[in-house]
Each structure stands twice: as structure tokens, then as C-alpha cells.
Nucleic acid binder design. Structure first.
Length: 279
DNA sequence: CATCATACCTGTTCGC
DNA sequence: TGCGAACAGGTATGAT
């Protein structure tokens, strides 16, 4: 679920709430989802929180890093008081408005009695402790290394469909299914196009489209529609779902020309596009 | 080497 | 209404 804009929104919120705090305890309720020695994070301070692509890395005072990947259904909720972790409204799906809930997998408590809850219905997400962050290989979309020339190089060496390629975190880090589809609409490029057939003008448009859409995702604090688990750490919802271009808009009119949005399947995932204006 | 299908989980929604 | 199939933000792995 969470793609770059969602993870960045969570990172900024967490940074405000937990940097400088001391970890008092950790409870791992789903053992497969935590990798590392739990005891070595106790009594450490939170130094900073970084992000590359969809992975967050919390730096601790003993120079270890807690890397977090939310995969499809992960959430991070913050509560000022672990004993009264009640949120203003129900969070997504099966969760109740109090924590821990039935999808809570890991709880980290701080010395001031505040806490974060790692919820994950589908159990694909993880938290890993190590001496460096777990990072995807590709440059982050927001980094200086993500240039139009980098995009050109990545595309020219692949015969994959362009949308499938955009999801490859070893090539570019941070783009997921929502923002890949919407970026291609923005650039008027069909998701089925073979990557190395895009000309320089099209690569330029795609580069601009990716940056436009990712920045818009961050501006609206991520995408939280009814079928998405994502919420902010205070359980409030993001707003990008009201600004989607094509994602989950099958049969609805294209925002540019009114033709019906189509859905196709690529590498096991849904792709959405306007058959009229995306060439 | 590159690309595709499958597995990992659990819950909700769709189609007959 | 009931019930199995399809689907959901992602990615590691093995198969082709």
C-alpha cells in the first residue's frame, strides 16, 4: 500500500513525535515480522528517521537502525499514552479505534509512556534491526540522483512494459501501483508500452509526470480510500484519493477527454489508463 | 540474463 | 442470499 508519499507522510509525523525519545520496551506479537535482537533496542534513544523509497529507517543512539517496510497493509500509529491508545475515529478495516487491535503486530513503548503500534492485517510488512538501513537499490524519486538521464538509462535497457518497470525498486525507489498509473496518465503514455520504445520527449514527459504526481501525493498526505489500510500515525486519513487520475477509476470518464478508463492486468497487477489519450 | 508466475497472509467485494 | 473467485498499497523466490 504505502508508496513514497504515504511513507514520507508517516516519516514526517513520526519524526515530530518520537525523535529524542528513549525506548522503554518492545513487544513482538508476530515473530516472523521482526528480525534482529529485540533487547538491543531497549534504553536506546531515537536519533533521526530517514527514508529511501518505501523503507523507513529509524536511527538509534547505539548506531543501529530499525528499518520498517509496511508492504501492502502496514500502519504505524502513535499514541501519547500506551494505556489510553484511543483514536478519534475507527482506523481502516478490521481495526477498532483502540490499540492494540487485532492486527497489531509490534508495539514499541517509550520512557514517557507514549508508544507506536505497528499494525498489519496481511503480515507482509517487517521491522528489521541492523547496523545499516535496509535500502532498495534504485535512487529515491525525491533524491538528486533521480534525474531524467537516469530515467532514460533505465528505460532504454528494458523490454518490460513501462508500468511494470516503474514498480521495480532496484531501478527507481518509491513508485507503487497508484502513482505509477497516475504518472503515466499525466505523461499521456500507455502502460503497455515497451520501456525501450519511448522517445526522448516521452521520457521527459514521464519524468515530469512522476515528479508532479509524487509531489501531489505528499501534498495531500497520501491515499486513504475505503479499500486502503493507510492512515497517518494519528489515524487520520490522507486526501490523494480525491485527486486520482486513473487509479481505480475503471469505467469513469477520463479527466482529459471523457473516454472511459480501462483496466488491464500486467504482471499480476491492475493497470488503469485512458485508451484515447495515452499512446 | 530477463521476464513471468507464484507465494506470502487475511479480509472484502464481485459475479453467478 | 450463498458461495467460491477475484482482488487489495509489495516484493522475494523459483520457474521458464
Amino acid at each position: 500500500m504505502p508508496e513514497l508519499p504515504e511513507v514520507e507522510t508517516i516519516r514526517l509525523s513520526l519524526a515530530k513525535n518520537i525523535v529524542g525519545k528513549t525506548i522503554k520496551s518492545i513487544q513482538v506479537l508476530s515473530p516472523k515480522q521482526f528480525v534482529g535482537d529485540v533487547d538491543s533496542i531497549v534504553r536506546q534513544n531515537i536519533v533521526s528517521i530517514d527514508r529511501k523509497g518505501k523503507v523507513m529507517a529509524i536511527k538509534l543512539s547505539n548506531n543501529l537502525y530499525l528499518s520498517i517496510h509496511l508492504k501492502m497493509s502496514g500502519q504505524i500509529l502513535f499514541s501519547k499514552n500506551v494505556d489510553h491508545a484511543v483514536y478519534g475515529h475507527p482506523v481502516a478495516k478490521a481495526n477498532t479505534s483502540t490499540m492494540p487491535g487485532k492486527t497489531t503486530r509490534i508495539i514499541i513503548e517509550f520512557a514517557d509512556n507514549s508508544a507506536i503500534f505497528f499494525n498489519d492485517l496481511r503480515k507482509f510488512g517487517w521491522i528489521k534491526l541492523g547496523n545499516k538501513p535496509e535500502e532498495p537499490m534504485g535512487p529515491d524519486v525525491l533524491s538528486a540522483d533521480f534525474t531524467v538521464n537516469h530515467l532514460k538509462k533505465v528505460l532504454s535497457s528494458s523490454r518490460k512494459p513501462i508500468k511494470v518497470l516503474l514498480l521495480d525498486q532496484d531501478k527507481i525507489a518509491g513508485i507503487g501501483n497508484i502513482y505509477a498509473n497516475d504518472s503515466l496518465w499525466e505523461a499521456k503514455i500507455n502502460p503497455l508500452r515497451v520501456a525501450n520504445t519511448l522517445n526522448d520527449v516521452e521520457v521527459g514527459e514521464l519524468y515530469k509526470g512522476i515528479l508532479t504526481i509524487i509531489h501531489e501525493g505528499i501534498k495531500y498526505k497520501g491515499s486513504s480510500s475505503a479499500d486502503e489500510a493507510y492512515v497517518l500515525p494519528d489515524a487520520s486519513k490522507g486526501g490523494y484519493q480525491h485527486h486520482r487520475r486513473v487509479y481505480h477509476r475503471t469505467g469513469l470518464p477520463c479527466l482529459r477527454d471523457g473516454h472511459k478508463i480501462m483496466r488491464v492486468r500486467q504482471a499480476g497487477r491492475s493497470s488503469f489508463f485512458c485508451p484515447h489519450c495515452q499512446k
